[in-house]
Simulated assay, not measured.
Amino acid sequence: MELTTESVVALSKAIAIFGTGLATAWGEKVIGAAAIGAMVENESLFGKALILTVLPETIVIFGLVVALMM
């Protein structure tokens, strides 16, 4: 099986998106569990918990930018 330049670039793009998606999912899982635990004790932390839960989404945006630049 011979790898062409196009296939290597496509594989690199897939790895960039997959890696950032996996990291984002793991980050949101950890932050979401901690946020729910904090909101059980103090309901006024909802706004901060929501912002912290959304922050890992920037990782996927960076991965998308890298994939589009390839």
Rank of each mutant, 00 (worst) to 15 (best):
V30F: 06
W26R: 10
A10G: 12
T58V: 13
T20H: 06
G47V: 14
T5D: 15
A35T: 06
A34F: 05
A33C: 00
E43W: 02
I17R: 04
V40W: 00
F62M: 06
L11K: 12
N42L: 00
A38N: 08
T4Y: 03
L11S: 14
L45Q: 13
K13M: 06
A14Q: 08
M70I: 02
I61G: 03
A49Y: 07
A10M: 08
I15G: 03
I36S: 07
M1C: 07
G37D: 12
I17A: 08
M39N: 12
L55H: 04
M69D: 12
G47D: 15
I31E: 04
F46L: 11
E28C: 05
V9H: 08
G37T: 01
I17D: 06
V66G: 02
M1Q: 10
A25C: 08
M69T: 10
A16V: 02
P56F: 08
L50E: 09
M69H: 02
L50R: 12
S12P: 04
A34L: 03
T53A: 14
M69Y: 07
G27A: 13
A10K: 09
S12I: 01
F62N: 03
G32M: 03
L52C: 08
V65F: 06
V9W: 00
S44N: 15
L64A: 10
A16L: 11
L68Q: 03
V65P: 05
I36Y: 07
E57V: 01
A33K: 13
V9G: 07
A10T: 11
S44A: 10
M39Y: 08
K48V: 11
M69E: 11
M1G: 14
I59W: 14
V60Q: 13
M70P: 00
L45F: 10
A14R: 05
I15N: 08
L11V: 09
I31H: 04
A23Y: 09
N42G: 03
G63N: 04
L45M: 13
L68E: 08
K48G: 14
L3W: 15
V40I: 05
L68T: 07
L22D: 03
G19Y: 04
L45N: 10
V65W: 02
G32D: 02
M70K: 12
